[in-house]
Design a protein around this nucleic acid. Sequence first.
DNA 1: AACAGAACCAACCGCTCGCAT
DNA 2: AATGCGAGCGGTTGGTTCTGT
Length: 233
Amino acid sequence: MENRKEKKAHPKRGLWKPEEDMILKNYVETYGEGNWATVSKRSGLMRGGKSCRLRWKNYLRPNIKRGGMSKEEEDLIIRMHKLLGNRWSLIAGRLPGRTDNEVKNYWNTHLNKKTLLGEKRKTIDSITRHDDNIEDHDSKKPRQISHDLDENKEANGDDNVGVRDVTAGAWMERVVRCLDYETTGTPLMMHHNYSNLVFDEEPFASYMDPFVLFEAFGAIDSDVGLGIKSFLP
DNA sequence: AACAGAACCAACCGCTCGCAT
DNA sequence: AATGCGAGCGGTTGGTTCTGT
């Protein structure tokens, strides 16, 4: 009579119980991070892999810092957001012990109103959205933009042409990659001539946040630092 | 004390990417 | 080259707690 559906094991949802946390913690300690899809099978947790991953990453992982943000952290978030826009994982990466989710929530609840950046300040994304006729470039993530640029460069056979057409967003991505020089070992700025950078809207200098300069000059190789310094007005 | 609205935050969802096959 | 899968990311939702009346 009633239409009995095949009983499908829907993953449990909602807040995590301490017992579940303990199971997940034990699982990760035994099997390590990753293979989240198999967590429920191996551990008996009735949770989806995504949920487990998120719970581990945002709550159970060692060295997670709980509690309110310090003034320094808050300041850093504001500056990083000015620089990167809503790239929460990148911002969180510079705040030891903080997760992207936490930074995002903190921004949305505390800082967004405070700074009014949400409306008045242009982020990387909004800057690349300067022309409605432009294809869906604004929705592309840095990796994609970077890829586009490489293609552009190849098509023209000229480094400078590709660089000249770069958007602010793509440029920002390159700066971020420079900031990550320590870990990647690839001094990006050394490979390109950025003297032809053109920005359609905001003056270039608006991106020369003292924090950026501090980070860039402090963290990376002096040659690269010099490359960045050459942009200064 | 009771209620409503605001604020907060954990978790979910949809999408994209990178990698293996 | 095409496909599938695991993982990561940012936006959004919804439950809980706080605050004002």
